[in-house]
Amino acid sequence: MSIQIDHAAKEFGALRVFQDIELEIGEREIVSVVGPSGCGKTTLLRCIDGLVPLTEGEIRVDGKKVVGPPQGVAVVFQHFGLFPWKTVYENVAYGLRLAKAPKQRIADAVPRYIEMVGLDGFEKAYPYQLSGGMQQRTGLARALAIDPHVLLMDEPFAAIDAQTREILQFELLRIWESRPMAMVFVTHSIEEAVLMGDRVVVLRGRPSSIHEVIETGLPRPRTRDVFSSPRFSEVREQVWGLLMHEAEQAERELQEVR
């Protein structure tokens, strides 16, 4: 197993964000994590990468306990996180340079990944010259360039317009098909969670915990046909129902307070 999350809980001061998280993620699967705003799914992702320490429990990547960003794990951020003073080429090369990869390897890998995400021709462009979609492609290429076996996606397409988002979703799936790895895909979009994932983890409650893990059971490779498959609708409705209940519950609590 690639990632093991063992009785994980996180508190920020007096606020307990999530607790009792038990999850295992395999070496070649995509697990979507979905839940209402503030349920700590983004925090959980950061805990997996060791950017934020857990209050309780332990996370292991490749059998080793996570205390800081582990080797072989790459993150794709919602805010893209590109360095504005670096060109696309330099941004993609960043992880390799930090790892002190030999020049030859960088010169081979970077153009390949730039092409893989469909940005060939833009090597010398700066982030401010790129659209949101293109910036995220760069972020993805940068993450892939270090050959990770775990990819953590933090609502990567949330800041991108709807049409580009759909294009990027299928691009990501295509890329994953060509080099499968463990992927945790955090999103607030139920459709996206079902589209991307082999399993969908539904976080719920205050503090949040795993309410249910649903096998999507959809065939790979995924194409746009999947949207019209009955299984897709079924899973989507199921997840929606779980989350809707939570939202209604929250609304009811608010009304009682009033």
Binding site: D49, L51, G68, P69, Q71, A74, V75, F77, H79, G81, F83, W85, K86, Y94, G95, R97, L98, A99, I146
Partner: peptide, 24 residues
């Protein structure tokens, strides 16, 4: 955000200055 990115790529301090802080 950018500091977090650098951290996620396991940047040491010297690299942080060179790639992030000084250019910024």
């Amino acid at each position: 955000d950018l500091l977090e990115v650098a951290e996620s790529y396991r940047s040491n301090e010297r690299q942080l200055w060179r790639h992030v802080i000084i250019p910024y």
